[in-house]
Structure formats: C-alpha cells, structure tokens
Design a protein around this nucleic acid. Structure first.
Lengths: 156, 156
DNA sequence: TGATATCGTAACAATGCGTGTTACGGATAA
DNA sequence: TTATCCGTAACACGCATTGTTACGATATCA
C-alpha cells in the first residue's frame, strides 16, 4: 500500500525552516525534500490555509513559519493536510444491508477508532520543537563528516 | 487513500461460511461478496495457505472452514492476508541521512507502532463467532422484511 | 519602466496496488 | 467422458499521491 508521505515531508521541512529561521523559496525547499517546487507549493499551500506558514510572492518572496517550533504540534500539521480521519478503516461495502458484513465492519471500525484516538493523542502532544531536539541529539551522537549543512543529500 | 478491503471481505464471508457450515464454491462466495470467482479464489487462497480454510477441486468441490468460528480470530485472518505490519507508517525517504527527516520519521514510527499494537490486541481477542453473534443481535433488532436469506443484495 | 524572481494553479503523465476479467490447464466426481 | 471447480497467468481499471511543464500574477530592484 502506497502511503501518503505529505505529513512526514511537512514535519521534516517545517523543522528545517524553524531552525533556519528565514524565508525559504519553494525551490530551496524542494531540494530539502528531493522533489520539485510545484509539489512544495501545493503542499505548503494547505498549511498556509491553516495559518501554519505564510507565503509571499515576487522577488525576495518565499515561505516562513508563522509561529515558533514549540507552538506547532504534529496534529496541527496533520489537520492542515487532511480534514477527516487519519486512518482509513478497511470496511467492505459489498452488501451494505447484510447484517454479517455490518457486524464485521463494526469490529474494524471500533478497532480503528481506538487506534486513531491513540495516534491523535500522540500527535497532539508532540511539537516540532521536540523533533528538532531529537534531531540535534542524533547529530551529537554521530560526529559530523565533511561539510555539514543541515540537510545533506545521500549520494542518490 | 484507497483501502485494502480484503480483511473485511474475508471476515464477512468466513462468518457466512461458518453459519452455512458446508462447502461453498467460489462462484457462490463471489455472489456474497458482490465480485467474481477469481478474486475469491485469489484471496481465499491466502487463507488456505495459513490453514484457515481448505479447498477441493473438481465436481462437488469448493471451500470450507477448517475450524469453528470461535477458533478463528480477526488477527488470524489479518496475518494470513499480509505478513508484515498492518498499518503503513507514512515516513519520508527523501534524504535518509538527514537527522531532521529521521527525527520526524521516528515520531511517526513510534505513534504508529503504538496504534498498531492496539489494533493487534483487539484483533487477537475478537473471534469470528463474536462477529456472528453481533450479526444475529442486529437481525433481531430489525424485524425481517421479505425473504430473509442470510445475505441479501441491496438493489445495486 | 523593464528585468527578474517567486508564488498560484491548471493540466497531464507516472506510479503503485488492490480489484475486475478473460482464458485456460488440472483435478475430481457422476 | 463430461460437467464442475480450483489454480494461475495475463492484462485492464480505478483511484490517490507524486512528478512535470507551462503560464499568469505579483513584488522587488536597477
């Protein structure tokens, strides 16, 4: 199953933006995410609509966080990306009036509701600042090699 | 995101098979699942490989449960369908050596691991017999209409 | 004013994976 | 020997994210 990589990408890049603390163009951000500027504008656009970042056009324009890293939770980003539920319950709709199918679906729905509740709880208490701290801790554990410029490409 | 409907379908049809308690052909099962026989054979084949059902070819052949409904859990079915994890953690792999990306991924992995643990716990204690009971209870709450033959089509 | 840098967005191809279909070979019972 | 059924290959389809190209709008700088 192909997963939706937007949340991970946004967490990644928002932390970078917070650490760099400046206005970044979609071009530079695309390099961080190993993709192209249009994808960046498309996805960051959703975050802008929810007040997490702001964008400015024209020369010298780009993207900037509207709050500090400790004031944005993973849940904020998730909600900005998709309105509804996070997990999609794998129900069947082959015979919607069949009591057996409904009973089977019920079990799955309950299980997924509980799982998602747990996800949301975790997302709600995790800030981007914590991710940044986590990243710094990792960096210290492994001494830097060559030029260490925040994000490095992986010889891909 | 398009979900994998196999688990729900298998739960649905296994309960029917347990209640009917006979050998069912992929053709008849396909009608229950509103699909075609090849899809049924394909999916039930995975369950057969894990000892949940058995199949027999030739005239009078078909599919049958190898155990009673109270001896098959939702987890058994899930495991038969997919070997690895149930949920797919939505990590990014844009710059695998970037500490920020790794830190973001870590958060997601932990959250999903906890959510999946909960799912598994629920799946492990839920048997097909319980689903069958649930279905009966529903049936009783709503008086039957017309001919009630286990599974009815939905005028689709 | 004109050149340049950036965003905003439409349009369309590529990708991945479960699903749907057709086809055909093998096996089993009447 | 014939009628069923399973087993499996092969290929098209649906659907959502991602990738790409293109072009218009806007803001800055000389």
């Amino acid at each position: 199953m192909k997963t939706d990589g937007r949340l991970a990408r946004m967490l990644h890049v928002l932390v970078h933006m917070g650490l760099l603390d400046g206005r970044e163009t979609s071009e530079r951000i695309a390099l961080m995410l190993n993709t192209n500027p249009v994808v960046v504008r498309r996805t960051l656009g959703a975050l802008r609509d929810h007040g997490i970042v702001e964008s400015e056009g024209g020369r010298g324009g780009g993207w900037k966080l509207t709050r500090s890293l400790d004031q944005v939770t993973v849940l904020d980003v998730q909600r900005a990306l998709t309105a509804g539920t996070i997990l999609t319950t794998p129900v069947s709709r082959d015979h919607p009036s069949c009591p057996v199918e409904r009973a089977a679906n019920s079990v799955l729905e309950e299980a997924y509701a509980a799982a998602e509740k747990q996800l949301i709880a975790k997302y709600g208490v995790t800030t981007l600042a914590q991710i940044a701290e986590h990243a710094k801790a990792r960096r210290w554990q492994r001494p830097r090699r060559e030029t260490d410029s925040g994000h490095n490409d992986d010889g891909a």
